[in-house]
C-alpha cells in the first residue's frame, strides 16, 4: 500500500485536474486543470522508471550504486516542453476569446448558437 504512494498521488492529481476541466466555467481554470493532468502524467512516467535506492543516471562524481532508468526521464523532458507549447497556444486562444466575447465564462460564449 505505502510503496504505491506515487501512483496514488498521480491518480489524485488526475482527478483534481479532471474536476477542474469538467466543472469549472472559467476558461483559464480549464487550462490550469489541463496543466495539472499533464504534471500528473509526468510524475507517473518518472515514478515508473524508479529503481529502489537508485541514483540519478549521471556519472560525474556519482556515489555509485544502482541507477534509475534514464529513458522515462528523457521522455518526460520531451513531454514538459510540449506541455509549455500547448499551454501557450491555449492561453493565446483564451486571449482571442476574451477579445471577441468580452468574457471567459463558457456559458456566455455561445454567440454561434443564436
Amino acid at each position: 500500500m505505502i510503496f504505491n504512494a506515487p501512483f496514488i498521488s498521480v491518480m489524485i492529481l488526475v482527478i483534481f485536474g479532471l474536476y477542474a476541466m469538467v466543472f469549472r466555467r472559467n476558461l483559464i481554470k480549464v487550462v490550469i486543470g489541463l496543466d495539472i493532468v499533464e504534471s500528473a502524467v509526468n510524475l507517473f512516467m518518472v515514478s515508473l522508471g524508479y529503481v529502489k535506492n537508485g541514483i540519478a543516471p549521471i556519472y560525474t562524481n556519482s556515489p555509485g550504486g544502482a541507477m534509475v532508468l534514464p529513458t522515462p526521464q528523457a521522455l518526460t523532458l520531451t513531454s514538459i516542453v510540449i506541455g509549455v507549447a500547448t499551454s501557450a497556444m491555449l492561453l493565446s486562444f483564451c486571449i482571442l476569446i476574451y477579445r471577441y466575447y468580452g468574457t471567459l465564462d463558457t456559458r456566455k460564449v455561445r454567440r454561434l448558437r443564436e
Partner: peptide
Amino acid sequence: FGSPKFTDMDNYF
C-alpha cells in the same frame, strides 16, 4: 514500485 521488470534497453544505455 521501485523494481521495474523490463530494463534491458535502459541497462544497455
